[in-house]
């Protein structure tokens, strides 16, 4: 069962070189809400211009001073204690500023709700990463 976010945990990319591109992490993230597919995934694994050139894992890195929160006009993105943000769905107006602001492209868009998808660092995805690319680290 998916556990709601815990302030002391943070999703960590342990070694992206080991990634095989299976995307099980993406499906896991979307599955947190019970349905299948990829509409709710806060993580993206894609090739670097063709699979022959390797893969890259794009996910929130829990910035301490997150640019996404800075550009939110309604304060819908609240700072987490040890980096990263929470989304207050009720405040969000779907302006996409946060998507533009994230330099690593880790704010994804949910086209079904018209709201951003924000990683809550629950670590559920890492439970399905057989290749130990993803893990959970403690933040103190």
């Amino acid at each position: 069962m998916y556990v709601s976010s815990h302030e002391v945990k943070r999703l960590a990319i342990l070694d992206a070189e080991r990634c095989v591109g299976c995307q099980l992490c993406m499906f896991a993230c979307s599955r947190r809400f019970g349905d299948g597919g990829l509409a709710k995934s806060a993580i993206l694994v894609r090739s670097v211009g063709g699979i022959e050139r390797g893969l890259t894992v794009i996910v929130c890195r829990a910035c301490l001073d997150p640019p996404c929160a800075r550009v939110c006009p309604t304060d819908a993105l609240k700072l987490r204690k040890h980096g990263g943000v929470f989304l207050d769905q009720t405040k969000c107006i779907g302006c996409r500023n946060c998507v533009e602001a994230c330099d690593i492209g880790a704010v994804f868009w949910d086209y079904e709700t018209n709201k951003p998808i924000i990683c809550v660092h629950c670590g559920y995805c890492s439970q399905f990463c057989h290749y130990k690319v993803l893990g959970v680290e403690k933040t103190i």
Partner: peptide, 25 residues
């Protein structure tokens, strides 16, 4: 495409998913 696929029995779905995943790996 990036759709979600609605699931009828969400709890059971996750249970069976986890089992098949463990079997596979």
């Amino acid at each position: 495409g990036k759709h979600s696929i609605p699931i009828q029995d969400k709890k059971k779905y996750r249970e069976i998913y986890d089992r098949l995943y463990r079997l596979a790996v």
